[in-house]
Amino acid sequence: MASQGTKRSYEQMETDGERQNATEIRASVGKMIDGIGRFYIQMCTELKLSDYEGRLIQNSLTIERMVLSAFDERRNKYLEEHPSAGKDPKKTGGPIYKRVDRKWMRELVLYDKEEIRRIWRQANNGDDATAGLTHMMIWHSNLNDTTYQRTRALVRTGMDPRMCSLMQGSTLPRRSGAAGAAVKGVGTMVMELIRMIKRGINDRNFWRGENGRKTRSAYERMCNILKGKFQTAAQRAMMDQVRESRNPGNAEIEDLIFLARSALILRGSVAHKSCLPACVYGPAVASGYDFEKEGYSLVGIDPFKLLQNSQVYSLIRPNENPAHKSQLVWMACNSAAFEDLRVLSFIRGTKVSPRGKLSTRGVQIASNENMDAMESSTLELRSRYWAIRTRSGGNTNQQRASAGQISVQPAFSVQRNLPFDKPTIMAAFTGNTEGRTSDMRAEIIRMMEGAKPEEMSFQGRGVFELSDERAANPIVPSFDMSNEGSYFFGDNAEEYDN
């Protein structure tokens, strides 16, 4: 993207840094990872977990959730003011799984939030270390993106479920800051804005008074975040219109849905970061690795190297396929839920299948599930090659597409044709070009129609051997075009429920 120079890199967003050079960025990201790792080690000690239990991804998720809940100030305040039966607002906890007599047992633990905050700050040299908290939120978000298709949420806001490739980060909490905003897809931002506008339509006082002023500035800020994701002048001009509207209503909703559809071809720039579970960072720190000293990046080879040398386990339900569970977590670790499966298959070195073909449910185990038949197995999170994460949407291309997802959002900077089903997408653009945004709409449609099938995206960008740390010898991959490109292809993934 041309304006790259004016933006802070995501590592800076990730670490609240002012302008830093590459070495400083690597050190501050490393410091953040160190903090998460030290916190995780301490929690495993508190909970008396064995090494194996500490490497269980379900335990990692519970521990991450506990610290996120302990620092969720708004919710904590709300819980104190609106006490609900049987919930102690000062405590947080969740299921911890232990191996007892050759069987997995679930144990519900409860801790004072104050105590968890103390352990977290102690692991982070006394700081609140917001960057580390956001990092864990993005890992949870990436896992949700890989596990669930947001059909219901899309339909509720009037969008087409086939636009799911635009929904990265749709389950990120509001408090995820600049680093969170960077990884949100165009569809996620559109959905947040539509929800806001709908509230304004239904509630006369939404934009009024002292609160209304705050609401208005939040609305304009979200519009600017979305505008910054678009790469064409016409899309940005249309966002200006939406932002400046005196009284946002149905016309703005129409414009936003139009823009979301246009992003299936004229893709937005959305950041991709490899955020790993805390149970990967903990053992690495415990083994003596100093992330701050060595430096770390979320968008280069580092996460690949770390996963190459990590042992992570997962509980497996009786009829689940461990290899499929591994694929789910591998995609989440690489922030690749909406990437082209052919690119992923090449990088991973084994075939990556669409969601609907995987015999696996989510990673988390519900409290009512029976533990008797639970097994555990090693997650295979290694890769054959590594590639640089991208934040450009890439230019655009036609490809055989599917009944489910009709476009992709690249996660890796790797040369390819970008699949999208042009006739299906263009069919949504018939007729409606009147109104105050008509010239911009016409211009956007013209650009979409001009998108050429034979153009290559990320020209000359390749993948790298894991021994090639400096990215000196790019390998331009070859793809098996007979395979499906979309992950949520004609899909039956479970729906995400809060």
Results as ranks from 00 to 15, higher is better:
residue 1 M to Q: 10
residue 4 Q to G: 05
residue 11 E to F: 07
residue 12 Q to W: 02
residue 18 E to Y: 00
residue 32 M to L: 08
residue 33 I to T: 03
residue 33 I to V: 14
residue 36 I to T: 03
residue 47 L to G: 07
residue 50 S to M: 01
residue 50 S to E: 03
residue 51 D to H: 01
residue 62 T to G: 01
residue 62 T to N: 15
residue 72 D to C: 14
residue 75 R to I: 03
residue 77 K to R: 06
residue 79 L to H: 08
residue 81 E to K: 01
residue 83 P to K: 00
residue 89 P to F: 01
residue 94 G to H: 08
residue 94 G to K: 05
residue 98 K to D: 15
residue 100 V to H: 00
residue 101 D to I: 03
residue 102 R to D: 07
residue 109 V to L: 14
residue 109 V to K: 01
residue 114 E to C: 00
residue 136 M to P: 04
residue 138 I to H: 14
residue 147 T to Q: 02
residue 161 P to I: 00
residue 163 M to W: 09
residue 176 S to F: 12
residue 178 A to G: 08
residue 179 A to C: 08
residue 179 A to K: 05
residue 179 A to I: 04
residue 183 V to H: 07
residue 187 G to P: 03
residue 196 M to F: 13
residue 196 M to P: 02
residue 203 D to E: 08
residue 210 E to F: 08
residue 214 K to T: 15
residue 215 T to Q: 12
residue 229 K to S: 11
residue 232 T to K: 01
residue 241 Q to R: 15
residue 242 V to L: 01
residue 242 V to W: 07
residue 250 N to K: 06
residue 275 C to Q: 10
residue 281 Y to P: 09
residue 282 G to V: 15
residue 288 G to T: 10
residue 298 L to H: 09
residue 303 P to V: 02
residue 304 F to A: 05
residue 309 N to H: 03
residue 311 Q to Y: 04
residue 314 S to E: 05
residue 319 N to H: 15
residue 320 E to R: 10
residue 320 E to D: 05
residue 322 P to E: 03
residue 329 V to Q: 14
residue 329 V to K: 14
residue 329 V to L: 05
residue 333 C to N: 15
residue 340 D to Y: 03
residue 340 D to W: 11
residue 346 F to A: 01
residue 360 T to L: 14
residue 368 N to S: 14
residue 374 M to Q: 10
residue 378 T to E: 14
residue 379 L to N: 12
residue 385 Y to N: 14
residue 402 S to Y: 04
residue 406 I to P: 05
residue 411 A to W: 06
residue 414 V to P: 10
residue 420 F to N: 00
residue 422 K to E: 06
residue 428 A to C: 08
residue 429 F to Q: 05
residue 430 T to P: 05
residue 432 N to C: 05
residue 433 T to M: 00
residue 436 R to H: 03
residue 437 T to E: 15
residue 442 A to I: 00
residue 443 E to Y: 10
residue 449 E to F: 08
residue 450 G to R: 00
residue 467 S to E: 02
residue 478 S to F: 05
residue 488 F to K: 11
residue 491 D to Y: 05
residue 493 A to F: 05
residue 498 N to C: 05
